[in-house]
Nucleic acid binder design. Sequence first.
DNA 1: AGATGATGCAACCACAGAGTTGCATCATCC
DNA 2: GGATGATGCAACTCTGTGGTTGCATCATCT
Lengths: 109, 109
Amino acid sequence: MTATAPDTLLAVFGALADETRWSILVALGEGDASASALAGRLPVTRQAIAKHLAVLQSAGLVEPIRVGRELRFRALGSALSETARRLDVIGAEWDRRLAAIKRIAEAME
Amino acid sequence: MTATAPDTLLAVFGALADETRWSILVALGEGDASASALAGRLPVTRQAIAKHLAVLQSAGLVEPIRVGRELRFRALGSALSETARRLDVIGAEWDRRLAAIKRIAEAME
DNA sequence: AGATGATGCAACCACAGAGTTGCATCATCC
DNA sequence: GGATGATGCAACTCTGTGGTTGCATCATCT
């Protein structure tokens, strides 16, 4: 459990490590939208966006919703919050170790 | 501010989106270490690790420390915590919008 | 001073993935 | 039923980068 980062974390970071995907997420943050609709606002092809949405979906950051003949996507904030919680735990752990080292160093003077 | 993700966020996610870099961070989480030392534990070359450390450093996740003739690195938890805080804010915003939509939908029945 | 171990730099290979174009398909609305 | 707009799939290009090897260099410890 303290070994390597879980796959889901890796997937989330991988998904979040792309400029275009952030643009998509930001756009979805203002309202659900289909790949075609997003292609209208962003400077990339619909197909490119579709791929990005697939990545985001498999990372659990986005959810597909059928409405009429189009497939809209919705940004899922819970996934981000969950990731944030995990990051915070890890970061706190590191800093705890740092504090311990500092304490020991000061005690040795 | 609500436009695109800040460069630092992108850099952090880019840095965190690699299996090997996580291994390095986890190793550093147990104690400071030099690139050469890390090369002993991990299944990659010292040079590869050096590159990864450079990436981690420019993302603010790691800090170099000269000790004798070796250059050790220390994992910085504060950067992770900061990132976590930002993620949480964004996620909460999305969920707030979702909740609003749900409320409206229910009111329309 | 000199051997040694550590770091730094450069060229190179290979694969992943971001992006494109083109076409097929499938549901929807008239 | 048929036109239409949306999605799905496939092949291809090209850049980024994780990884390697080889050599140069530089500080350190004896």
